[in-house]
């Protein structure tokens, strides 16, 4: 299962400049970060964001993740110079603390 995060041209350039070259070009110059996630992470996301859709038939990805959640992952990557999966785990952790506080 994957999480896909599309990048705008500006953000893609910025990440490249910072050496955070984790995105792949998918279509006509559009770049996307792909984060492979295990079942326990998928379950955690579903617990925290129950409205997301896990699409196992076509895209094999977690869909309808809020824009703010994806933006937070990118922000964490930039601020802490983390690779995408580490940034994702930090964001999940922070979200869980916020919800439980």
């Amino acid at each position: 299962m994957k999480i896909y995060i599309w990048l705008s041209e500006e953000l893609s350039k910025k990440l490249d400049e910072l050496g955070l070259n984790y995105a792949n070009e998918v279509l006509g110059g559009m770049k996307r970060i792909e984060i492979e996630v295990e079942d326990n992470i998928v379950n955690k996301i579903l617990e925290l964001l129950p409205y997301v859709k896990v699409d196992t038939s076509t895209t094999n990805s977690i869909e309808l993740l809020p824009k703010s959640f994806k933006s937070e992952i990118l922000k964490t990557m930039v601020e802490k110079r983390l690779e995408p999966k580490q940034a994702l785990l930090e964001v999940i952790d922070a979200l869980e603390k916020r919800i439980n506080s």
């Binding site: 599309w6 006509g28 559009m30 869909e63 824009k67």
Partner: peptide
Amino acid sequence: MQVFSGSLIRSIILDEVKPTKTI
């Protein structure tokens, strides 16, 4: 080849990212 699949375009739009003008 890079395919213009409906689900791909849809996911770009759902991420609120402006596509490149090539797309």
